[in-house]
């Protein structure tokens, strides 16, 4: 090898080192732009608009799955609590009813029984909910984390591509196709842009496809498992409403002329309202069933307004301590 050849060879090698170094430099520069939130080239950003929209969908799937898991957990807990409270209320009514030899006592007993039954049936809801929880959890571990990996790789390649574009922009400032040296440099950068672009375009495509698939499979999962839940819920409602309806039927035409019985019921109710109001969200509906049931039996009673007042007091937004108080007291309280 002549001296001249050797120098040429040496510089060639050297220039590939320089090349690598420059690649790193522009990639780092792009990373910095991204990390520091500096304004990016708006055309480059605009050309990724479809990708960014897909990423938005991905993040929403990610976020809402997390939220769904939390909600299911809370819901499960509340079902348990509600069931417990319902059961206690039922047991209380039964024991109170057994001491009351009047017809009202019978009604209380029957209602208590119905509530205990409903409290048991309610727990059946947990099975499809557990299933939903597991499926969503699996979905998160498998599908979401798999997509997440692809998204990460895509972001890496995006940084590399944008870095290469920065580099190309830089060498384009001074470019003359008739100057050999400049062209040689430009070709190198062009090759780098082509390479990183090919990689990025492929991953971009992968991400878009995966996100579409992710959305579709979540839809599928939810519709499948939620149908299960829906069926169980309907089943539960059917059973309990059936029981309630049966009680209602058996006491039809009953005219509680015993005012003291009504008094007992009212006091019982107030006590319960006070206790259960703490978890009013859940008990509100139980009470409604309860209330309408009694409302019907109390139809002929003059002071039906007592019930209405009670019911009005049950506004979930008011202070639980105000339940059962008169309006005047209430006004004083809120004043």
């Amino acid at each position: 090898m002549s001296r001249k050849q050797w120098i040429a060879h040496y510089f060639n090698q050297d220039s590939s080192v320089v090349n690598k170094f420059q690649q790193k430099y522009w990639k780092t520069k792009q990373t910095l732009i991204k990390v520091t939130g500096k304004k990016e080239d708006k055309h480059v950003v605009a050309s990724d608009a479809d990708l960014d929209a897909k990423l938005e969908v991905f993040h929403s799937v990610q976020r809402t799955c997390m939220e769904l898991l939390k909600v299911i957990e809370q819901y499960q807990r509340r079902i348990c609590l509600l069931s417990q409270e319902e059961n206690e209320l039922g047991r209380f009514l039964r024991s109170q009813g057994s001491q009351d030899k009047s017809r009202a006592g019978k009604i209380m007993q029957a209602t208590g029984k119905a509530l205990c039954f409903s409290s048991q049936q309610r727990l059946a809801l947990r099975v499809p909910l557990c299933r939903l929880y597991q499926e969503v959890e699996t979905f998160r571990y498998r599908a979401i984390s798999d997509t997440w990996l692809t998204v990460n790789r895509m972001e890496q390649s995006r940084t590399e591509y944008r870095g290469a574009l920065l580099w190309m922009k830089d060498v384009s400032q001074e470019l003359d196709p008739d100057t050999h040296k400049q062209m040689e440099k430009f070709r190198k950068v062009q090759a780098q842009v082509r390479l990183t672009k090919t990689r990025f375009d492929k991953l971009k495509n992968d991400v878009c496809q995966k996100v579409d698939l992710l959305g579709a499979s979540r839809c599928n999962l939810l519709s499948h498992v939620l149908t299960n839940y829906q069926t169980t819920l309907l089943h539960f409602w059917e059973k309990t409403s059936h029981t309630m309806a049966a009680i209602h039927e058996s006491f039809k035409g009953c005219q509680p002329n015993d005012v003291s019985a009504l008094k007992v019921r009212k006091e019982t109710l107030v006590a319960f309202l006070y206790i259960y109001y703490v978890d009013y969200n859940a008990v509100y509906c139980v009470f409604l069933v309860f209330f309408f049931f009694f409302l019907d039996t109390a139809e002929s009673i003059k002071d039906r307004s007592v019930w209405f007042n009670l019911f009005a007091d049950l506004d979930p937004l008011t202070n639980p301590d105000a339940v059962g108080r008169t309006d005047r007291e209430h006004e004083l309280n809120t004043a």
Binding site: H43, V44, A46, S47, L165, K169, L175
Partner: peptide
């Protein structure tokens, strides 16, 4: 392609 817009401006 739009991503090259800022680059081609220098041409």
């Amino acid at each position: 392609q739009e991503s090259f817009r800022s680059i081609t401006r220098s041409y």
